[in-house]
Amino acid sequence: MKKRHIVIIILLVVGVILLSSSTYIINEDQVAVIKQFGLIKTTIINTKDYDLVKQNLIDNNKEDVKIIREKGLHFKIPFIQNVEKYDAKYLTYKSRTEKINTKDSRFLDIQIYAQYRIIDPVKFNESVISESGANYVMDQRLYPVVIQSGNRLVFNEFFQSEVLESNITEKLDQLNKKLMEDFGLYVTDVGVNRRTFPTDNIASIESKMSKQIEKESEKLIAEGDSAYQKAKASTDRQRKELIASAIEKAAVTKAEADAEAIKIYQESLNKDLEFYKFIQRMDIYKNLKDTTIFLDKNNDLLEYVNGYQ
């Protein structure tokens, strides 16, 4: 009876081992290759990458490799086939810091980044094998492209993200074609995440910036002075025009008033000349008060005096 129990336990253990050796699970964020006697027979990929992987296998003479797009539980031949899995999520590459000599002969330290994925696990397994190997590939293939693109830009363009990224993106399609064909990798995003001035250039840069600021300041001051002089000249001209216009209007008004006064005066004389003479005599009498004068008997003034004695 004990022997029978031992046999059953042994059979169960063997069954568990065989079952675990004949099944494997591929998660949604994984891709894999299944090898038989060291040769890749099957690959499990993301559904959306099927066309790219299929074409890449053809280009690399691997048409006989079976492509599986379903993730989850799968079966294999135990002890004969083995599975190698890779991360299918976006991986991040960060470069070492590199000194750039810009088109206008200025220096800048930059560090780039890239987002990439393992799309064809067959080619990746044959040429790269690990994520650290993928970073090495980026150092050798992607990094020089960015540096060469940077050398064709002027200093200020490094701080205009759209200019730099546009310059890099132009070469990305051609670069991805080679990365897929040679390593099964695909870059989706590239950029510069750090721009710093080389330590030995800081003093020179500060001097150039100071001179540039001084030059801009002088330009703005000159423009301000010019604008002030123009505004002042315009204001003075307007003031003189207003004064001249006011003087002209005042002169016209005074002339009109004088003319009107003379007209009224003349009309008054024409209406009652005798009354005017009477008023004149009264003014004379007023002025003669407490005054002694000597007049000739024929003086016209005596006529006014004698006429009103």
Rank of each mutant, 00 (worst) to 15 (best):
Y186V: 00
Q212W: 10
P144C: 07
F107S: 11
F183L: 02
V128W: 06
K177F: 02
V145C: 08
D200H: 11
L185N: 04
E131F: 12
M180S: 01
T97M: 06
K178N: 07
T97V: 13
Q148K: 15
I110E: 04
I168N: 04
M138K: 05
G191H: 08
N125D: 12
E98D: 07
D182Y: 03
K171Q: 12
F124N: 03
F155R: 07
E131P: 01
E206G: 00
S105L: 08
Q174H: 03
L179H: 02
S149T: 15
D189A: 07
S207C: 00
K94F: 09
Y136Q: 03
S127L: 00
R195I: 14
T199F: 13
S132I: 05
I147Q: 10
I112L: 09
Q148R: 14
D173P: 00
M209W: 05
T196Q: 14
F183E: 00
I205Y: 12
T169I: 08
I112G: 04
I110S: 03
S217P: 00
Q111L: 02
D189Y: 10
Q148Y: 10
P144V: 03
A222M: 07
K177T: 07
F124H: 07
Q160L: 11
S95L: 04
N101H: 14
K219N: 10
N156D: 15
M209F: 09
Y143M: 05
Q148D: 15
V122Y: 14
E214C: 04
L179D: 01
